[in-house]
Write a protein that binds this DNA or RNA. Structure first.
Length: 556
RNA sequence: CGGGGCGUAGCGCAGCCUGGCAGCGCGCCUGGUUUGGGACCAGGAGGUCCCGGGUUCAAAUCCCGGCGCCCCGACCA
């Protein structure tokens, strides 16, 4: 590609509203452009990167025997009604109506469509197993898109679906995907971890996420530096350090705390760290209201609560008032007749602070034994300093970008949507399914977050938009350009009438990892090859260029 | 959905409070000088000031309504 003819535009200044490094760099480098909230155009440069990522995905999916297909995005409501997700997806689903008034959705994921195909083509155990995948645009009306390309409303996703006759078969399909995913992310040059995850709306049994650790990420993980354990905080067991924490309050005492309600307010008013407060939250359940107690600096994990209590939901302020006769800020566990569930961490506190159960008062100096009858459970998100469930070392809390997710779905969709097959014994059985996603756009973002600096990008060679960038300072590079193109490389040739500084700055921003500078040594028949990953500059006679370039490109 | 901020040239912004010719830097075009890390000089093009309504002799500026975008939170494969 001749750069002077290309649609590559770089910008000296980032858009004012870009918060993440990847957003700034991708816009400045002319990779992407926002159209509306959470919707982006991939400009030619960005699309080249996407195509290379998708090609790697295709190769590795094909390698595990998966077959590529392409399903529609426009889907009628009836399919979603069958699975029950017309309701449960709620506002996250983009919905529209045709001229006859029928309801449609732009597919946010494709389990229902796969099931519809499967129930028509899968009849016998002989038809199984199958793995089908596609690269398709998904639509999700996210309540809040953010971080540039990190969370968007329209995005390409590689989604695959496994169909098996047996649970062992599902395990195999799942294992194949895990392997394929590891190869894909490795080939894309990413550093990643995989973690146990929550399966959320998808429904299902086991699931793992593939994560790139990055401050820009929205997910939170706990990591164990000594044994390598990693998990999403959503599912990680919260095991507190077994060390008693003594507050300054030695005596049980009621104190006047006028209009002091929130954890921050109470903590500041009493001059005590939030960890010495205990939050008392009223949850409504199918078995009646329950008082849930966690440390002031901890967060209740409602998914964990739901494993213990039937359908818990936080009580409204009005419900609390009519139930306990006290306002939300002053609810406390003493002298309350509700059943109590407390997080384990509360057990290690001495002299903590709780609401007094009456307006404008708290009680300080409370000990666990004062709480009376309490059920001790793990009901909160894990956090920094909790213990590793494998080896007991302290855990570290980090942010991460989710780039892939694999699920064992089981029979959730096959049963609701009627995907059955006849087994060897003549019995009709539901197909056992798995579903597996990868966000190519997030791979791109992750690479930028990992390897970009404030003014430069450095793409892994496998997903760079070009194999090599010729920075031609003398305007005589056509010979080299032709040479490399004939050798089959994707070459960007900067033959613009620009000063050297401009060309270098642009090249840094574009971030092609191998760069050939045609400059002052050209009169001696030499060029400079820069390998940005190796941080090396080699001055080479042009005759040796192809040989050395080939070797450099073969390195990761 | 709650809280906050912003919409003025392709990008970054000033002007708004206190109404009176729509500006600055970068980018773009032309000519010249320059030429290995975002050059310099001269000239030039480019605007529904987010939209609609109102107040006024006069609205980017004041008032009312709407739309859009961003951030924090809630939410989320």
């Amino acid at each position: 590609m001749r750069q002077s003819k290309s649609l590559i535009r770089t910008y000296r200044e980032p858009p004012a509203d870009a918060e993440t490094k990847s957003h700034r760099l991708l816009v400045r480098g002319g990779y992407v452009r926002q159209l509306t909230s959470g919707v982006y155009t991939f400009l030619p440069l960005g699309w080249r990167v996407m195509k290379r990522i998708m090609e790697i995905i295709r190769q590795e999916m094909d390698a595990i025997g998966a077959q590529e297909l392409f399903m529609p995005s426009l889907t009628s409501s009836s399919l979603w009604e069958e699975s029950g997700r017309w309701e449960s997806f709620g506002d996250d689903m983009f919905r529209l109506r045709d001229r006859k008034g029928r309801d449609y959705a732009l597919a946010p994921t494709h389990e229902e469509i796969i099931s519809e195909i499967a129930r028509n083509v899968i009849h016998s155990y002989k038809d199984l197993p199958q793995i089908w995948y596609q690269l398709q645009t998904k639509f999700r009306d996210e309540p809040r898109p953010r971080g540039g390309l990190l969370r968007v409303r329209e995005f390409i996703m590689k989604d695959s679906y496994s169909l098996d006759a047996t649970w062992e078969g599902l395990d195999e399909s799942y294992a194949k995907h895990r392997k394929a995913y590891e190869r894909i992310f490795t080939r894309c040059g990413l550093k990643f971890v995989h973690v146990k995850a929550s399966s959320g709306l998808m429904g299902g049994k086991e699931s793992e996420e593939f994560m790139v650790i990055s401050d820009a990420g929205e997910d939170r993980l706990v990591l164990c530096d000594s044994c390598g354990y990693a998990a999403n905080v959503e599912v990680a067991p919260a095991i507190p350090e077994e060390r008693v924490e003594e507050s300054p309050f030695k005596e049980l005492k009621k104190v006047h705390t006028p209009n002091v309600r929130s954890i921050e307010e109470v903590s500041e008013f009493l001059g005590v760290e939030p960890k010495f407060l205990v939050k008392s939250l009223v949850y409504m359940t199918d078995e009646g209201p329950v008082l849930v107690l966690v440390r002031g600096d901890h967060e209740v994990n409602e998914e964990k609560l739901a494993r213990i209590l039937p359908n818990p939901r936080l009580a409204t302020a009005d419900e609390v008032l009519s139930l306990l006769g006290v306002e939300v800020g002053f609810v406390g566990p003493l002298n309350v007749s509700l059943p109590k569930i407390a997080d384990h961490a509360v057990r290690y506190l001495r002299g903590f602070v709780v609401g007094a159960g009456e307006e404008d008062h708290h009680i300080v100096g409370v000990n666990p034994e004062d709480l009376g009858d309490v059920r001790w459970e793990d009901i909160r998100y894990a956090t920094e300093g909790d213990r590793c469930p494998v080896c007991g070392s302290p855990l570290r809390l980090v942010n991460a970008i989710e780039i892939g997710h694999i699920f064992k779905l089981g029979t959730r969709y096959s049963e609701s949507m009627g995907v059955f097959f006849s087994d060897r014994d003549g019995q009709r059985k539901p197909v056992i399914m798995g579903s597996y996603g990868i966000g190519p756009g997030r791979i791109m973002v992750s690479a930028v977050e990992l390897y970009g600096t404030e003014n430069s990008m450095l793409w892994p060679k496998s997903i760079a938009p070009f194999d090599v960038h010729i920075v031609d300072l003398v305007g005589e590079g056509e010979e080299i350009y032709d040479l490399l193109r004939r050798a089959g490389y994707d070459v960007l040739w900067d033959e613009r009438e620009e000063r050297a500084g401009v060309k270098f700055k642009d090249a840094d921003l574009i971030g092609v990892p191998l760069r050939i500078v045609i400059g002052r040594a050209w009169k001696d028949g030499k060029v400079e090859l820069q390998d940005l990953w190796a941080q090396e500059r080699l001055e080479l006679p042009k005759e040796r260029l192809l040989e050395v370039l080939k070797e450099r490109l073969s390195r990761p």
